[in-house]
Design a protein around this nucleic acid. Structure first.
Length: 523
RNA sequence: GAGCCUGUAGCUCAGUGGUAGAGCAUCCGACUUUUAAUCGGACGGCCGUGGGUUCGACCCCCACCGGGCUCACCA
């Protein structure tokens, strides 16, 4: 960026400025970005949003400062399995392993060496599909390799302080048993939530009692023999890795606050954080993985290009947004507008497409026809194949095809799916009146008879349009518009439609005849 | 109880200090072999309320009112 360019106002750049300021104060010359994943952790649309948004901030940071950075995708795979998920096989087996770290539980899908490894693999595969640049990190690896040992001993030294930060936030029953340190049971392998009776800083260990049989154990806090409870875990990680930036949903506001306090108690300034708003379903409720409400990534990508999902995630992260089918067309058209405006934008850094494409707009981005428009057309002509739509598009842009307009070709593909699943099912076919029935019968007969006839210099569409018009004239339709209304309402189930001759030419004469017969049979 | 978001045209929403906007809906007109994937126009707003800062506020600050969500067990 040149000195004269005004500072971009877009939120990723504002976040980047906050990070740059932090680095300046700390005297750091590189930045660590982190995103975290819970143990239930199969990738979902929120995962995409968090990594996409973090990546945009990171790109803005690079652009702003020129400093190196890393993005760590950290999996909490050492957390104990609390309950058996609904959507996995081998539930009975999993039940036997409840309470143990995910990386110590066999993979219910029988593909990887553990359930944790399975989830980790799925996550990385997911992130790679979208082309995110990241480094994967496993909590189990970090704990067992000793990478966290220094920080864990440090936590032990501040044990009382940390307990005092957390205690006021807990209910009375929990207060009695709370400790940020969760020993792994040396015999059963279960992550234990037990009172810590003694903290031995010199030995780096804690003493606790197994409530099942009263046995007393002394467990090292290092080397993976123990792990930390959630909020302390987050704080310790920030401390140990010196994380500079991490965003999270607003459901974690209190956790961010407490973890930040703990991080400070350990002696380091917590990272720059951003709290983003949650996604709501069509009824305004929080999207929940277990409830399965809202919209999945796969569903979104069925109905619109992935750029539109990025556009949706880019826009106003601190604003609650409905994540449902009906937001897709607008997100898509917003993206198209941004991509179209980017090449001539005065402030490209403020354009969503700049962020979505990492600063470089691909060739053929954007579309001469909006998605909403295309949906309208698909609905009106009952499009069930790309060629039907292309026929109309070519009337508008001569010579257009999938090769010259590749992005439009993707839109066409998606418009058909969206129309099929959301628009078409809402259609209503009404029964024909007596007069209409006669007209339709006439039309079917005339179409079948005239199929071979062709006047010189006349396109099939014109010929068919004339035929439809002539049939209407032969019957008492007044005004003639009502004859065409009948065609749309009875045959297509819509209130309006395309020039009917063109529709027949595209749809096929025989199929149109069949369509009429179906409608007559229905009436 | 703690916190966050939100209030702008009939609807859905843009709009980060300089003349209030878009899409849809509605109405009028052009076209006339219906239709709109067309073109032109109109209608429509104390920008939730009250105060403050400012030469100037939809925008920043404070208070209030309305709508909604999240967390208060676990992660």
């Amino acid at each position: 960026m040149s000195e004269n360019t005004p500072a971009p106002l877009s939120w990723p750049f504002r976040e980047a400025e906050r990070i740059a300021e932090r680095l300046k104060q700390k005297g750091k010359d590189h930045a660590l970005f982190e995103t975290g994943y819970g143990p239930s952790g199969l990738p979902h649309i929120g995962t995409f949003g968090e990594v996409a948004r973090t990546s945009w901030v990171r790109k803005a940071f690079t652009d702003l400062t020129g400093l190196p950075s890393r993005l760590l995708a950290f999996s909490d795979d050492m957390d104990g399995l609390r309950k058996v998920p609904d959507n996995v096989p081998n539930k009975a087996m999993l039940k036997e392993y409840l309470g143990r770290p995910l990386t110590k539980i066999p993979d219910p899908f029988e593909k990887f060496e553990s359930f944790g490894a399975h989830n980790n693999n799925r996550l990385q595969e997911f992130l790679r599909t979208f082309g995110f640049e990241f480094e994967f990190a496993s909590a189990s690896d970090y704990y067992t390799s000793g990478r966290f040992d220094d920080a864990l001993l440090h936590v032990l030294r501040h044990h009382e302080e940390i307990v005092n930060i957390i205690l006021p936030t807990l209910g009375t029953e929990r207060r009695a048993t709370y400790s940020p340190i969760l020993p792994i049971h040396p015999r059963t392998g279960v992550v234990m939530q037990v009172p810590i009776e003694q903290v031995d800083v010199d030995n780096g260990s804690v003493v606790w009692t197994d409530p099942a049989d009263g046995t007393k154990y002394e467990t090292a806090v290092t080397g993976g023999a123990a792990k930390l409870q959630w909020k302390a875990d987050w704080a310790m990680r920030w401390y140990a890795l010196d994380v500079d930036y991490e965003m999270s949903g607003k459901d974690l506001i209190d956790s961010v606050k407490l973890s930040s306090s703990i991080c400070r108690a350990l002696g380091k300034e917590p990272p720059v954080t951003l709290t983003y708003e949650l996604f709501l379903d069509e009824k305004g409720q929080k999207i929940s993985k277990s409830k399965g409400n809202g919209l999945s990534i796969d569903e979104w990508l069925t109905y619109a290009p992935k750029e539109s999902l990025s556009q949706f995630m880019y826009h106003a992260p601190q604003r609650a947004k409905k994540l449902f089918f009906d937001v897709i067309p607008r997100a898509t058209d917003d993206y198209i507008a941004a991509a179209t405006a980017l090449p001539t934008a005065e402030k490209p850094h403020d354009n969503p497409a700049w962020h979505i494409h990492g600063g470089v707009l691909p060739e053929h981005a954007g579309s001469p026809i909006g998605f909403g428009m295309l949906l309208n057309l698909a609905s009106v002509i009952n499009a069930d194949s790309p060629e039907m739509l292309w026929g109309f598009i070519r009337a508008y842009i001569p010579g257009a095809d999938a090769e010259s307009y590749p992005f439009l070709a993707r839109l066409v593909h998606h418009a058909i799916a969206y129309n099929r699943d959301f628009v078409a099912p809402a259609k209503k076919f009404r029964a024909p009146t007596k007069v209409e029935r006669a007209g339709l019968t006439d039309l079917a007969k005339s179409l079948a008879a005239d199929e071979q006839a062709q006047y010189p210099g006349e396109t099939p569409a014109e010929k068919l349009q004339n035929l439809v018009y002539a049939v209407g004239k032969r019957h008492p339709f007044a005004p003639l518009k009502s004859w065409f209304d009948c065609l749309y309402q009875v045959l297509l189930g819509t209130t309006e439609g395309p020039r009917f001759g063109g529709f027949i030419a595209l749809y096929g004469v025989e199929r149109t005849v069949a369509l009429i017969e179906t409608a007559l049979a229905r009436g």
